[in-house]
């Protein structure tokens, strides 16, 4: 990166460190920090969307829809996220490609499963095999976001389902007295009122989501933990200009600080949001907020 970095063997101290920390490989870990933050920024709203859908389905008067919602919440919550991540991404990828295959290649006569191979027609590949690498990476990232959103959506559905029930009965009865239909009551009263009850649970869920990001490498995204392991491992002089011993400890320490910082910032942000939402609300105060800070 810097002009004086051309021969790291003669450098020492800060000069060496400044060169070491700016190698192309280290740029990858800084890039990965951005990836993690971006993933959190997209997954948060996406999981909320899944959660809203799940919660609405679960309280639906239509029995099959209600079963679907409840089943989604119960099954996805019952499975450890790690176990889910280990097979779900490949399944999702194959499922999407299969659907495209059915749509795009109706006269493809070979079987999709040949032994252990999964073969769809070339036009159905996602992304197309001729696509540049960045498209593959974006696709992999999108799959990871979708998987996270499905898993955390189940938890969000659980929280929102509880919050919808926590909206005081009196308000709903009042709405009915004004002649609102159930649909109107839901849209105009329940949804605007539920957030204050949902926020502590959703805030917690956010914290959990933050702490689940070290599992991203299981989803094939090269995240900060992947790079911390890779950069921290012993490097022999044969393969690098910057040989060093086992430095994983220092890299993980940096990760620890990163996550503690992210937690602290999230806590402060959520606290502000809570005060904002509480304005003019007749909430139970202590009781509803009890679970979290």
């Amino acid at each position: 990166m810097f002009a004086y970095c051309s021969d790291p063997q003669v450098l020492d101290g800060l000069a060496w460190l400044s060169c070491y920390l700016t190698t192309g490989k280290h740029m990858a870990i800084y890039w990965a920090v951005g990836t993690v933050l971006l993933l959190l920024a997209i997954t948060g709203p996406a999981a909320l969307l899944f959660g809203f859908g799940g919660a609405v389905a679960a309280r639906s008067p239509v029995a099959p829809l209600s079963w679907l919602g409840r089943g989604y919440i119960a099954i996805v919550r019952g499975v450890p996220d790690i176990a889910f991540f280990l097979f779900f991404v490949i399944a999702l990828d194959q499922g999407l490609e299969y659907l495209r295959h059915l749509a795009l290649c109706p006269d493809w006569d070979q079987p999709v499963r040949q032994g252990s191979d999964f073969l769809v027609c070339p036009q159905a590949k996602l992304p197309l095999s001729s696509a540049p690498q960045w498209q593959h990476e974006v696709y992999g990232f999108a799959l990871a976001v979708l998987t996270f959103a499905i898993v955390f959506g189940a938890f969000a559905a659980n929280v929102l389902h509880g919050a919808m029930r926590a909206v005081p009965r009196a308000q709903i009865e009042t709405a009915e007295a004004y002649g609102m239909t159930p649909r109107q009551t839901f849209r105009r009263i329940v949804v605007p009122q539920m957030w204050i009850y949902a926020l502590p649970g959703l805030g917690n869920l956010w914290m959990v989501l933050v702490k689940a990001t070290p599992l991203l490498f299981l989803l094939g995204v090269e995240d900060i933990v992947y790079w911390a392991r890779e950069l921290g491992g012993t490097k022999t002089p044969q393969f690098t200009d910057y040989p060093h011993g086992d430095w994983r400890m220092w890299y993980f320490l940096a990760l620890l600080v990163f996550y503690l910082g992210l937690t602290r910032v999230s806590e402060i942000g959520l606290e502000r949001l809570m005060i904002r939402l509480s304005r003019g609300q007749a909430t139970l105060g202590g009781a509803a907020q009890g679970g979290v800070r």
């Binding site: 192309g24 593959h136 022999t236």
Partner: peptide, 21 residues
């Protein structure tokens, strides 16, 4: 037209990520 070569990138000297990433 593009063949994608899958490797691990963590098994020197067979394959590894060099300083430039």
């Amino acid at each position: 037209d593009v063949i994608r070569m899958g490797t691990e990138g963590a098994y020197p000297p067979y394959n590894f990520i060099d300083d430039s990433g």
